[in-house]
Design a protein around this nucleic acid. Structure first.
Lengths: 324, 324
DNA sequence: TTGAAAGCGCTAACAG
DNA sequence: CTGTTAGCGCTTTCAA
C-alpha cells in the first residue's frame, strides 16, 4: 500500500503538496499537478480514509437505527434514507434492533466514539434516558426520544382523517383499529386518535386492539386477525398498518367474508405490499421517500451546524384500492 | 471532549497506562485500574474510534452491497447479515445499488480506502473487472464476480430438483419458469437448468421467460405475469421467485383460474411473503439466516487471515403450501 | 507556489 | 509494573 509519502517522493514534491493537489482542484501549477497525478497512477495510491477521518475529525457516515428491515415500511425507509444520504456524500451504517439485546446502546456508543457523524433513529426505545445530553447530532424518525431531539414524521392527524374519510363513504358501524404496542408513544400512534375522533362524531363505533411489543412479522398479525374476527363478530371495518390489514384480509377471505361488501379495509403506510396482493388495498400512504430525503437533509444540516427552520412534517395521501 | 491525555493527567498516570488498562482486562494493579476508571468516569471520557482505527489499521466494519433492500429476499438477507456481523463484533455499512449510477464503484473505492475491512457483495455486477486484483477481503453472495472471489450460496441444483419434485406429484404438462435477467450468470440461475432437466426427463414441456435487468419490484412482475397468461394459454405450472410467483397468483385469481386445480405455483426463495398472502405459496426455501451467518463468518475469517476449508454451500428445503 | 512540521487521538514496543 | 515515545497516514498552518 503506497502512502502519501511515497507519492511525494515519486513526484519529487513534498507531502503537503500532494495532499493539497489531491484535495483542492485549484491548487498548484499544472506541471506540479501532473507530476502528482502521475505518481498516484504509477504507485496505485489510494488515500487512507481512516487517516483522513482522524485528521478531519469526521467520518462522513450516518447511522440508521430501525427495529428491522424485513418489514416493508422500514425496508422502503432504509433504502430511501441510504439513497438520500449517498447523494449528500454520506455512507450509511445500519443497525436493526429487534433481535438484539441492547444494540441500541452499542450503537449510541459508536456515535459517541465518533464512528459516525450523526444518527437517524427510527426504532422504538424504552430507554430514552440514553438520549439525554447526547452531544452528537441525532434526529428521530417518527419517534419521541427526548424533548431536544427533533422528529421527522408524516402528519398523522391528517392521516387519520384521510382514513376516516375513506370509511365514511360507506356504511360502517363497527370498526376495529389495530395499533402497535402502546408501551411507547409515537407520532404514528396519533392517527388512531384522529380517526376515532372523526368516527365518533359520525356515530361509528370503534375499537382499538394492539400488537405485542416489537412485533413486525406476519405471524403475530395473523394471530391477531383471527382474534379480531372471533371477538368482534360484527366488525365491518378494519384500519391498521399494511401488514396488519393484509393479514386481516387473508383471514377474512378464508372465512368467506366478501370484500369489500361485508368488510372494508384501509391500510396505513401504503407500502408496496398494498399493491401486490390479490386485492389492492385502499391505503393511507406515508410519503416515505420524501420523509427520508427530509430526514437525510436534516441530519446533514445538524452535522454541519446549519440552522434550518423548514418544517419537519409531511402530509400523507389516500391511495385508492379495492378494499374500501 | 476529554482525550486520553486528560484521563492520564486526572488519574496521575501516563497515557500508555490508560490505554493498556482500557484495552486489556488483565493489565495493571487494581489500584491503578481504579484510578483510571475513576478518571474516565469523572471526565466522561469516550475513546475516539477514528484514532483507534488508524492506530490499529482496521475499522471493524463490513460493507454489504445489495441491489435493494425493498425486496423480501434481500431484506431478510441484510437483516440476517447485519445480525451475524454484529455478534462477531462488526458494524455494517449498507449500500443499495439499484437506483444509483455507479454506487458499486464508489463502494469498492471505500473498501480500498480502508473504510471497511471487507465486503459482502450481493448485487449483480456488470463490471466484474472492478473486482480483479482487489487486495481487500471480498466474498460474493450468490454471485460470480471473479474466479478468485469465493461465493456463499444455496445448492441451487438441489433447489431446482426440489421444485421439480413438487410439480411431479401432480399432472403438469406445460410449466413456465420466470428467471431474472440473463445479462449476468448467477448460481441462483442454475436452479432453472436443474429443474428443466428433471422435467424434460419426465416429458413435461417447460418454458423460460425473463425479467428485465435489475427488476425487483411488483410492477414488472405483474406485467410479466399478464404476458405469460396471454402468451401461454395452456400453462398449468409456474416456477419463479417469491415475488414473481405472487404476482402470477394475483393475476391468475383475477382471471378466475382455480388454484391449485388449474394452475400449480412454486415460489423460489421462500421468504415471509410466501406465508402472508391469501394462499400460502408452496416454496423452495433458501436458508437465508444460515447463509448469512456463513457469509459473515467467512468474511471475518478472511479479514483475520484465517484459512477455512468448510463448505460455502447450504441446502434449500421444500416448504409445503397450498399452491402445488 | 511550495516545503517543513505540528497536530488529529490512540496503541504498543521499548526502556526503566 | 509503569512511563516515554515513536508511529498510524493524512491535513493544514505557517514560513520561506
Amino acid at each position: 500500500m503506497a502512502k502519501i509519502r511515497d507519492v511525494a517522493r515519486e513526484a519529487g514534491v513534498s507531502v503537503g503538496t500532494v495532499s493539497m493537489v489531491l484535495n483542492h482542484a485549484d491548487y498548484g501549477s499544472p506541471q506540479i499537478r501532473k507530476k502528482v497525478q502521475d505518481a498516484v497512477e504509477k504507485l496505485q495510491y489510494v488515500p487512507s480514509e481512516m487517516a483522513r477521518n482522524l485528521s478531519l475529525k469526521r467520518t462522513m457516515t450516518v447511522g440508521i437505527i430501525v427495529p428491522t428491515v424485513s418489514h416493508p415500511f422500514f425496508a422502503e425507509l432504509v433504502e430511501a434514507l441510504e439513497e438520500s444520504l449517498y447523494h449528500l456524500g454520506y455512507k450509511t451504517m445500519l443497525c436493526c434492533t429487534r433481535q438484539k439485546e441492547n444494540a441500541e446502546n452499542v450503537f449510541i456508543d459508536m456515535l459517541q466514539r465518533q464512528n459516525m457523524d450523526g444518527i437517524i433513529m427510527g426504532a422504538h426505545s424504552l430507554d430514552t434516558a440514553l438520549y439525554q445530553g447526547l452531544k452528537q447530532p441525532i434526529i428521530a424518525f417518527d419517534r419521541y426520544l427526548s424533548p431536544e431531539i427533533p422528529i421527522v414524521h408524516a402528519d398523522h392527524v391528517l392521516g387519520g382523517q384521510l382514513a376516516a374519510k375513506a370509511f365514511l363513504q360507506h356504511e360502517c358501524r363497527h370498526i376495529v383499529q389495530i395499533a402497535g404496542s402502546q408501551m411507547v408513544k409515537t407520532p404514528a400512534g396519533e392517527y388512531h386518535q384522529a380517526f376515532q375522533k372523526v368516527m365518533q362524531a359520525s356515530g361509528v363505533r370503534t375499537e382499538l386492539v394492539t400488537l405485542p411489543w416489537n412485533s413486525f412479522g406476519f405471524k403475530d398479525s395473523l394471530q391477531l386477525a383471527e382474534k379480531i374476527f372471533d371477538e368482534y363478530r360484527d366488525v365491518d371495518g378494519i384500519l391498521g398498518s399494511d401488514v396488519s390489514v393484509a393479514s386481516c384480509l387473508q383471514v377474512a377471505v378464508r372465512k368467506g367474508i366478501k370484500i369489500p361488501e361485508q368488510l372494508k379495509l384501509v391500510a396505513y403506510d401504503g407500502t408496496d405490499i398494498t399493491q401486490s396482493g390479490i386485492y389492492k388495498l385502499t391505503a393511507v400512504r406515508q410519503p416515505i421517500e420524501e420523509l427520508a430525503e427530509l430526514a437525510a437533509k436534516k441530519i446533514v444540516g445538524l452535522i454541519n451546524g446549519k440552522p434550518d427552520a423548514s418544517p419537519w412534517t409531511l402530509p400523507p395521501t389516500l391511495l385508492a384500492g379495492e378494499t374500501c
